[in-house]
């Protein structure tokens, strides 16, 4: 069952997409976006894992065990923090939608036509 971790990542991606398609609330849609983003985190860290590996911290590293991939960790840790503020921006837009139309339901906000 080697590709099981990647199957989990695929499930998260499609689940996030399903959430956006079927959402009736912008806040719910924003959280589904973060679920979709977490599929990339899971894939990144699983790609970087090594069997019997140890964290890439050379202080107090046990000899004989290989270091896990530090590059994917560097990419992921900044992305996680950035996802918070992108979520804050989407929620700010949702708050504006609520202030304009009294609801955060995409159907209620029908400004565009044709």
């Amino acid at each position: 069952m080697a590709p099981y971790p990647y199957a989990v990542a695929g499930v998260l991606f499609v689940a996030g997409l399903y959430g956006i398609v079927s959402s009736r609330n912008y806040i719910h849609m924003a959280v589904c976006l973060t679920v979709m983003q977490s599929s990339t985190y899971v894939t990144l860290i699983c790609v970087g894992y090594l069997n019997n590996g140890q964290p890439p911290i050379t202080q107090g590293a046990q000899p004989g065990k290989p270091l896990v991939d530090p590059v994917v960790q560097a990419l992921t840790l900044t992305d996680v923090v950035v996802s918070v503020v992108v979520l804050a921006l989407v929620l700010a837009l949702a708050l504006q939608a609520h202030r304009r139309t009294g609801s955060v339901d995409p159907d209620r906000l029908r400004g565009m036509r044709g």
Binding site: T34, I45, Y49, P55, V68, L77, V80, V84, L87
Partner: peptide
């Protein structure tokens, strides 16, 4: 579990403080 402590701290801090507060 996958030996990525930096990312675990990052996710822990974010998902226990930032996401719930803003949401």
């Amino acid at each position: 579990v996958l030996q990525a402590p930096d990312v675990a701290i990052s996710m822990a801090v974010v998902s226990t403080v930032a996401y719930p507060a803003v949401l």
